[in-house]
Every structure is written in C-alpha cells, then in structure tokens.
Design a protein around this nucleic acid. Structure first.
Length: 396
RNA sequence: GCUGGAGUCGUCUAGUGGCUAUGACAGCAGACUGUAAAUCUGCCGGGGUUCCCCCAUCGUUGGUUCGAGUCCAACCUCCAGCA
C-alpha cells in the first residue's frame, strides 16, 4: 500500500535545516515547499491548470470547513480525485478554528506585539474548548457541531488527504503561561486520541494516510521542548509546528522543537509564508509551509516583488511589470501593474474575478519560486548568501 | 417665451424650520500569516498648536425668523412639457 516517506537530500551546517523529498501516495513534494491553501477543497480563483502553471506541489484543505462534505469526498475516492487537483494534499484538523472562532474571534491574527491582543469573551465565542473536544457554532447557520480528536480524524480520513493533522488547541498571544500549559496537556492527550483513531481509519481509501502530531506550547522553551520530546516518541509520520508566534520568537521556538523532534520526520510550519518567516522556518528545520497570505493579500491588492510588497492601488496606468523578470503566467502574459489595477477597479464582476486570479497566480508563484530557490541554495551550499541577498532586496 | 420640476463634498444621495448636513461609490493611507477575510480600520471642504480648535459650506443675491440646506423673492443653470 502506498504510504508517506521522507528523504533528506542535504542538511544545513546547523543540523536542522534541510532539503528533501516527501513521497506521498499522490506524488512527491520537493522540500522546502509551499502548500497552497484551498480551504474548501479548491484554491480560491485558481483552476487546477493554474496550479500546474505555477508549479504548485501540494494543496492544503481544512477538515472543519469540509466537515459536511467528507462522506461525499470519500465516495469519489478522496480529496485528490474530488478536487481534480490530483496531487499531494494535506488537511488541517480544525485546530486553527479553535482559536479563530474562539479566543481570536473577530480579530486579525498578527505577529506584531503592539496589537495588544485581547481574547474574545468566552460567552461570545463560536468555539468553546473542553477536554472532550470543541463545541463549534457555524458562523453562517448557527448550527452546533461537536468536534474532538475522534471526530476530526473521522472527517479527515473520509476526506482522505495524504497528510492529516492531529486535532490541537491553538492558543492566542494573549494566553498566559498557565493557560498554555493547561492547553498543552490537553493537546497532548488529543494527540494520543488522534493517533489511536487515525490508525483505525487510515487505510480505508486504498492508500495509507499519514498523520502529523501538532506541537503547541506558546513561546515557552520548557513547554516546547517537553511536548516535542513527548510527541517525538509517538509514531507520527511527521510533525506540525503550530502556535501564534511573535516574529522575534519564531526562530527560537522552532529550534527548541526541532532539537527535540526526530530529524528524519518531515515538519510542517503551520500558517506562515512571508519570505522572512520561510527563511527562518527552513533554517530551523521546517520542510513545508502553508498560508492564506499570498492569495488573500492578492485579492486585497498587495502584490509581491523582489524589491518588496506594494499596494496596486498606487499604480494607476503604470506600465511597470508586477515583478521584473517574474516567471508566473500573469507576468509572462505581459500584464502590467496598470493593467491589473484597471481590472481590479473596473466595477465589472467578471473583470474583478479575473484580477483575483491573475494576482493570486502571481503571488503564489512568487512564494513557490522562493521555496524552489531556497532548496537550490541549500543543495549548492549557498543558503546564507541567498537569504541575505533576498531579504536585503525585499525588506530593504 | 410660458408652465412645472430640480440644483447638497470628485460622483450619486439623505435631509421640508432646531444644536455637529446623511449614506454610498470613487480617491487616499494602513492592515491581513493552519481563510467567518472579494475583508477590515482610518482619512476624505480649508487651516492650525491635529484624540482638540478655528474658518468656510447645500447654484447666486437678498429677505422672513431667536434660528434657514429647509420658508419667501429675484436671478443663474439644468430637465420635462407646451409654444
């Protein structure tokens, strides 16, 4: 039976960062790699042809959002077939929604300290946590849904992505050490329950689905190291590196985790994709990444270029390319900043939709190309030089 | 020319005697990291010492009134109908 395996091709001098290949039942992922977020089973505004054209290697969908469709997806043979993407896939457990519909409801997730994060009052939350699991309230319909580790595993095994995430509780930057400690004990118990349930269901679609354990623990070294040690001894196929991070803490936190985790298992850094984060993540041992930023920011008019991000609003009638020398389909087709701005602001729904597609294609390809270049720099022993050069151009 | 209707911020628009003139769009600035996000926040007449203050302002000019975008008159412009 086809199953996941991981091959390390080259390791950085620090012993943590590496380039490798994840073999999955639906194909290989050369790492480091960016997995494109398609929460509902498709990437917003992108076709499967677009995904090919930007050299996407994998798609990440969400068990919580697909919970009502999992049986239907199982019926057609799993997410790869259902979506038509037919490549490697990963599903999140719904753990992010524990925070985004719970303590972080209505707030913007940020890595900046000055945001003075305050948790949403418990009574107002659409996700309420107990040791048993999480009581969700559907944001649109108001329907209640209980999801614990067993339910998340059942949903994910029906969806049938190549890689699943253990059900975890993501805490917010506002949570205290005491709360994080308590939540971590819960997440560790959930990891065990996830693993037990997953084992029973993982072969049902004719290929072996993999399960990653997810590490939490906030910004505290003792919590991070102890959970990494604990989950590292369990038979997970890989690990998800989770949490709400301050930028300045990211490198340390990942290092603590990966110094304890088994080196030969793949690691996925959950939810980050800005270039500086990808460099830090790769340096500290993350193999794959996912993030909504490239697609969301594209829709909001923020585009990526070698010399940094910019707001398209400022480029009325501009003949400048989106990013000089970019190999994405949008740039290769000759679209200028002015062209895209005109589509965006045209007031025509079809044109606007085309803008979303063209901009998303550009941003996602930009991040994918970054991971390709990072991989090459690791293989050729030039990681530090490449990082320095890229970040200098990008952030100035 | 006559009769009727209408003129409010770049545009559209609310407002028919009362305190700070609505709201939307456009524009400008910012945010966004395992998607409640095709979203959100701020600015959007001028000036300043800019979490506050001053001045201006509803086509124009006068008038009524304690008080006028609102009522009255004349004029200007636009629209419709009739000549």
């Amino acid at each position: 039976m086809k199953e996941l395996s991981f091959e390390i091709k080259k390791t950085l001098p620090n012993g943590l960062g590496r380039a490798g290949v994840i073999h999955t039942p639906h194909g290989d992922i050369k790492t480091p790699a960016f997995m494109v977020v398609g929460t509902m089973g498709y990437v917003k505004n992108l076709s499967n042809d677009d995904m090919q054209d930007i050299k996407a290697q994998a798609m990440l969908s969400n068990g919580y959002h697909l919970r009502g469709k999992s049986a239907e997806i199982a019926k057609v043979g799993g997410l790869a077939k259902y979506s038509g993407w037919n490549g490697p896939t990963l599903t999140d457990s719904g753990g992010f929604q524990v925070m985004s519909l719970g303590s972080g409801l209505g707030k913007v997730v940020s890595m900046e300290r000055e945001d003075k994060v305050i948790n949403t009052a418990h009574k107002d939350r659409l996700a309420k946590v107990s040791d048993k699991g999480v009581d969700f309230t559907d944001p649109f319909t108001g329907e209640p849904d209980f999801i614990g580790p067993e339910e998340s595993m059942r949903i994910q095994c029906e969806i049938g992505a190549d890689i699943h995430m253990a059900f975890d509780e993501l805490t917010s930057l506002a949570d205290t050490y005491e709360y994080n400690k308590k939540a971590l004990v819960r997440t560790e118990k959930w990891a065990e329950r996830s693993l037990n349930e997953h084992m029973k269901l993982r072969d049902r679609l004719g290929y072996r689905q993999a399960l990653y354990g997810v590490l939490q623990g906030g910004r505290w070294e003792d919590l991070r190291r102890s959970t990494a040690k604990k989950l590292g001894e369990m038979p997970f196929d890989g690990y998800g590196l989770g949490g709400a991070f301050l930028k300045e803490d990211l490198g340390d936190i990942l290092r603590w985790c990966n110094e304890e985790l088994p080196a030969n298992k793949p690691k996925h850094l959950l939810g980050l994709s800005h270039p500086d984060d990808i460099f830090v993540g790769t340096e500290m041992g993350a193999d794959t990444f996912d993030c909504v930023a490239p697609t969301r920011e594209a829709r909001h008019g923020k585009l990526y270029s070698k010399s940094g991000e910019y707001n398209l609003r400022k480029f009325h009638d501009s003949p400048l390319p989106l990013d000089d020398g970019c190999d994405c389909p949008t740039c290769k087709a000759g679209y200028t900043r002015g062209d895209l701005r005109a589509l965006w602001k045209s007031g025509d729904a079809e044109k606007k939709k085309e803008f979303y597609r063209l901009a998303s294609v550009h941003n996602v390809r930009f991040i994918i190309r970054l991971t390709e270049n990072i991989r090459e720099s690791i293989m050729s022993g030039r990681f530090d030089e490449y990082r320095k050069e890229f970040l200098k151009n990008y952030y100035g």
